[in-house]
Computed example of a mutant assay.
Amino acid sequence: MASEFKKKMFWRAVVAEFFAMSLFIFISIGAALGFQFPVSENKTTTPVQDNVKVSLAFGVSIATMAQSVGHISGAHLNPAVTLGLLLSCQISILRAVMYIIAQCLGAVVATAILSGITSSLPDNTLGLNALAAGINSGQGLGIEIIATLQLVLCVLATTDRRRTDISGSAPLAIGLSVALGHLLAIDYTGCGINPARSFGSALIVGNFKDHWIFWVGPFLGGASAALIYDWILAPRSSDVTDRMKVWTSGQVEEYDLDADDSRVEMKPK
Rank of each mutant, 00 (worst) to 15 (best):
68 S>Q: 14
69 V>M: 05
71 H>G: 14
72 I>H: 05
73 S>Q: 05
74 G>C: 02
74 G>M: 01
77 L>N: 00
79 P>D: 00
80 A>T: 02
81 V>S: 06
81 V>W: 04
82 T>Q: 00
82 T>F: 07
86 L>N: 03
87 L>A: 06
88 S>A: 14
90 Q>L: 13
92 S>W: 02
96 A>M: 06
98 M>L: 14
99 Y>W: 06
106 G>E: 02
106 G>R: 09
108 V>A: 09
109 V>T: 12
110 A>D: 01
110 A>Q: 04
110 A>K: 08
110 A>V: 06
111 T>E: 07
111 T>N: 01
111 T>P: 09
112 A>Q: 13
112 A>R: 12
114 L>H: 08
115 S>Y: 08
117 I>R: 10
125 T>C: 10
128 L>H: 04
129 N>P: 06
129 N>K: 10
133 A>T: 13
133 A>Q: 15
133 A>M: 13
134 G>F: 06
134 G>E: 09
136 N>W: 07
138 G>H: 11
139 Q>P: 02
139 Q>K: 13
142 G>P: 12
143 I>T: 12
146 I>V: 15
150 Q>H: 08
151 L>P: 02
154 C>W: 00
155 V>D: 00
156 L>R: 01
158 T>M: 14
158 T>Y: 11
162 R>M: 14
162 R>D: 14
163 R>C: 11
164 T>D: 15
166 I>R: 14
167 S>K: 15
167 S>H: 15
168 G>M: 07
170 A>G: 02
174 I>S: 03
175 G>I: 08
181 G>S: 09
181 G>N: 03
183 L>P: 09
184 L>R: 09
184 L>G: 01
187 D>L: 15
187 D>Y: 15
188 Y>D: 13
189 T>V: 09
189 T>E: 10
191 C>L: 06
191 C>Y: 09
195 P>G: 03
196 A>K: 11
197 R>N: 02
197 R>C: 05
200 G>Y: 03
200 G>D: 05
200 G>M: 03
